[in-house]
């Protein structure tokens, strides 16, 4: 059990605690060759605001070059009860970053006895992305998006990051990963202020559908295996994942919509 003297303790920071006990989760000893290896990559994730909070969604595919390395990856996860994080980029460091981020928020909450503010959480993630910069320079880029419900302000907020840890709050939506151009365009066209949750979920699904249609690294809904994108809403009641039966129904409606469109031609 680490027992620190007062004035010499790592405070509520889990990352600092790891350093103090001799564990450094961010590898800084990579060789140049690492860029030439095809590590699994995670791709498209989106988040958009609606009337009562935010909706986050991400596809399930991970690719290594032109090979599909994983079909049911979970890139959108809850960071804590009132926030979620979605990650695009090299899967290994991305998953490690998510794990550390979740732990950091819980660690802070337990040590301090209260939740970190949403702004504080976004800032923490920013520091972790910056911590990964040496690896990013060698090709192991991780670019997250962060969204949550701000309990103090009473509305949903979302943030976009760049590989250097730059943090940009957006008012409407954010998209990250290889399919983000396509997904972002769909959301940009369909987004309305104070949308309902149902409309926001449908728009998020549609954006991933279109991204999968145009970007080979983004996976579409896999009805054969029953693998659907991960979609979740975060409101004053906290994180809630939309279940697969609802998603399967929405995907069927989306397919019907497309078939109708094609018949008209």
């Amino acid at each position: 059990m680490p027992f620190f003297t007062p004035g010499d303790h790592p405070g509520a920071s889990f990352a600092e605690l790891l350093k103090r006990v001799g564990i450094d989760p961010f590898q800084k000893h990579l060789t140049e060759s690492s860029t030439h290896v095809n590590f699994p990559h995670a791709t498209t994730c989106v988040a958009l605001r609606f009337a009562d909070g935010v909706v986050m969604a991400g596809d399930r595919r991970a690719t290594s070059g032109n090979v599909i390395s994983h079909r049911s990856m979970e890139k959108v996860v809850s960071a804590d009860k009132f926030s979620g994080v979605a990650i695009a980029g090299t899967a290994g460091p991305a998953m490690e970053m998510i794990k550390l981020f979740q732990l950091q928020l819980e660690h802070y909450e337990k040590v301090e006895g209260q939740l970190l503010s949403l702004e504080g959480k976004a800032n923490q993630l920013s520091m972790m992305v910056r911590g990964n910069l040496p690896a990013a320079m060698q090709g192991l880029v991780v670019v997250p998006i962060f969204a949550g419900y701000d309990l103090q302000k009473g509305y949903g907020r979302l943030w976009d990051y760049d590989p250097t840890g730059g943090r940009y709050e957006e008012r409407e939506f954010v998209a990250t990963g290889s399919g983000s151009v396509h997904a972002g365009a769909v959301i940009k066209v369909g987004w309305r202020t104070s949308m309902s949750q149902d409309a926001a979920v449908r728009l998020a699904l549609k954006s991933l559908w279109e991204a999968a249609d145009s970007d080979s690294a983004t996976g579409g809904p896999d009805t054969l295996r029953g693998i659907y994108p991960i979609v979740a809403s975060i409101t004053a009641n906290g994180w809630e994942r939309i279940d697969d039966s609802t998603l399967s129904r929405l995907v069927e409606e989306l397919i019907a919509e497309h078939q109708e469109r094609n018949q008209e031609v």
Binding site: P2, P10, L103, H107, V111
Partner: peptide
């Protein structure tokens, strides 16, 4: 309280590793 925080640290470290 110092013991409490040490416990949280020990538990979170073990769960992480």
């Amino acid at each position: 309280d110092q013991l409490r925080v040490s416990g949280v640290r020990a538990a979170d470290l073990k769960g992480y590793q």
